[in-house]
Structures are given as C-alpha cells and as structure tokens.
C-alpha cells in the first residue's frame, strides 16, 4: 500500500514569492496604491494566510520578527521561514493581528512606539510593521511624498489614520523611521513608507 504525501500549503516559494514581491514593490513605490495578494493567500492555510504570504515572501533565517496578538502565528512563521523570534524593540518585521478596535489601537501604539527606527548612518536597520486592518474606510486624508504625484486624496480607515498619527508623533529624524504595510481581510495590500506623509505638501 502506498501513501501520498500532501503539503499543507500550496504556496510556491519561487514563483508565488516573486509575484508577491513585485506587488509589494509596486505598493511601496507608489504609496496608497492598493494591490491584491488574495490569490496567493488562498494557497495557505491557518488563521492568517495573508500574513503567511508576506512572511514566506520576505522572511528567512537572516531576519527577525515579532507577532503581536497571536502566539500560534509566531510559531507558524518561525517554523515555515526559520526567521528568528525577537523582542518588539529589535524585530525587523512586526506583524500586528487584528482584534477589537480598542485592542488593535493599543497594539499599534505599542508597536510604533517601540519599533526600531534605524540610525542616521544605517537607516535601513529599521522595522517594517505589517498590520491586518479589518476596519472600514472612514476618513479622507491627503498624502504626499515620493511615489505620489503632487498629492493624493485617500479614503482610509481609523486604524490607518491612527498609525500615521502615531508615526508622526515619534518625530523621527529622516532618514530614520519605520515603514508600514496594511493588509485587509479581502487580501488588499497597500504600503506607507516613511516618507509618505499626511497633510498639506
């Protein structure tokens, strides 16, 4: 009798990773541009397939990460990518799981206030915060910065606005800073790198 070995995840670490990376690159190059990673997340199982999609694309044993809000996800990412679990202050990638509005805001605040922002000499040694944002778009803001032609009127959720306000409150001296990536339940992803700012140009 023969038995068939089946894989839990169908995500292709060569071709799917490449496509997801190009989508992230597009999103980061053009802040607030929405791209969809849902079809890749459909190839992964568990409670957080969107986070796993990003983790499998960006993480490996060379980098560290931290998950706020789900220990099981932390174990899953660690076993799939071999990335190092690290304290919030030292993590290269920080994943924030969605929760109730109040709890999510609290996690976001903790993450942004403690994430490493690099140094003036080595600004690349800074954290990327990846947030699962389930809340609906609720406010209009004006964004500007590299990747945006002049300014961009954008309809964003309270969580995103809150994240931008918290990041502004840190008063990082550029090039220090943190980069934000948001994913929605529908698999939509957009990014707000450190130079994407809210307000009037």
């Amino acid at each position: 009798m023969t038995s068939t070995l089946s894989k839990k995840h169908d995500f292709d670490t060569v071709f799917d990773s490449q496509e997801v990376f190009r989508l992230i690159l597009d999103a980061l190059s053009c802040p607030a541009r929405v791209v969809s990673i849902q079809k890749y997340a459909d190839k992964l199982f568990g409670a957080h397939p969107l986070f796993l999609t990003l983790a499998l694309t960006l993480l490996d044993n060379e980098v560290s990460f931290c998950v706020l809000g789900d220990d099981l996800l932390e174990d899953e990412i660690s076993s799939l990518t071999l990335a190092k679990k690290e304290q919030l202050q030292n993590a290269d990638f920080i994943f924030i799981c969605s929760a109730g509005e109040k709890e999510e805001a609290q996690r976001l605040q903790t993450a942004i206030e403690n994430a490493k922002c690099g140094t003036l000499a080595d600004p690349h040694k800074s954290a990327t915060i990846i947030v699962c944002d389930k809340s609906p778009a609720a406010s209009y803001v004006t964004l500007f910065g590299p990747g945006i032609a002049e300014t961009l009127e954008c309809h964003i959720s309270h969580a995103v606005k809150n994240a931008l306000e918290l990041r502004d409150a840190q008063n990082y001296e550029y090039p220090q800073g943190i980069d934000l990536i948001f994913v929605s339940n529908a698999g939509e992803l957009f990014a707000l790198p450190r130079l994407a700012r809210m307000g009037v140009k």
Binding site: L25, S29, L58, E62, P123, T128, P146, L195
Partner: peptide, 21 residues
C-alpha cells in the same frame, strides 16, 4: 537561490523606502 533573492528583495524594498540611500 531563493535566499539570495529574498535578501536582495528586502534591500530593494528598503532602498525604495529611503530614496537615494
């Protein structure tokens, strides 16, 4: 190899986030 690509990709994303650096 995929590890090399991933490292270059991570650096590319940082480079885009900090233009000119």
């Amino acid at each position: 190899d995929e590890g090399s690509k991933r490292e270059i990709r991570r650096c590319t994303l940082k480079a885009v986030a900090i233009p000119g650096y």
